[in-house]
Simulated scan of single mutants.
Amino acid sequence: MLIYKVLRAEEWADLASTGQIAGAPVDLADGFIHFSTADQVAETLAKHFAGAADLVICACHTDDLGADLKWEPSRGGALFPHLYRALRLKEVRWQEGLVMAGGQHVLPDRVE
C-alpha cells in the first residue's frame, strides 16, 4: 500500500541531498513522521498546508518502512500512518511537486 508524505521544497531538498530526513517541524515536535493514505492526503493538505506553495508529495510503500510504521488514531479516530524513525530517500517510490488550481492543491493522478 502506498502512503504519502507532504514536504516543503526545502525539506525535500534536504532529504534528496542527505539521503534521510527526521521530518518537518511538526514531525520533530510529535516524535514521528506524519503520513497520510490516499483517502486522507487531500484533507491533510487543506488542513495543514492551505495556500502553501512549493510542496512536494512523496509516495512510500508501507512494506518498505517496516516495523517502525505504526497506524494510530488521529482526526476523528481515523488511523493514520506514523513513522517512528527517519525517512530514507531510498524508501521514496516517487515524488512530484504539487500545483495549485483555484486555490487548492491538485493531487497527481498516480495518488492511488
Rank of each mutant, 00 (worst) to 15 (best):
A16T: 00
Q95I: 00
K5D: 01
E96A: 13
A29I: 09
R93M: 08
L79C: 09
D109Y: 06
G51A: 04
V56M: 10
C58L: 10
A38C: 04
A78V: 13
A22T: 06
L65G: 05
H48I: 00
D64K: 11
G51M: 01
A29R: 13
V6M: 11
R75S: 00
L69P: 01
P73G: 07
G77T: 14
G103R: 06
E11H: 15
P81E: 06
P25T: 10
Y84M: 10
G19E: 07
A78K: 10
E112D: 10
L69N: 05
E112V: 15
C60I: 08
L98E: 04
F32T: 03
D109K: 09
H82K: 12
L89D: 07
K90L: 08
A101R: 13
I57N: 06
H61L: 03
L83F: 09
D30I: 08
G76Y: 13
A59K: 04
T62D: 07
V6R: 01
Q40D: 12
L79S: 09
A52V: 15
I21A: 09
Y84E: 03
I57F: 03
L83V: 11
T62P: 09
Q95F: 12
S74Y: 15
P81F: 12
L15K: 01
L7C: 15
E91R: 02
P73A: 15
Q20R: 04
D109W: 09
Q104A: 02
D14P: 00
E96K: 11
L83H: 03
H82W: 08
Q95R: 09
C60V: 13
K90M: 09
K90T: 14
W71C: 00
R93D: 07
V92I: 08
E11S: 09
D68P: 02
W71Y: 14
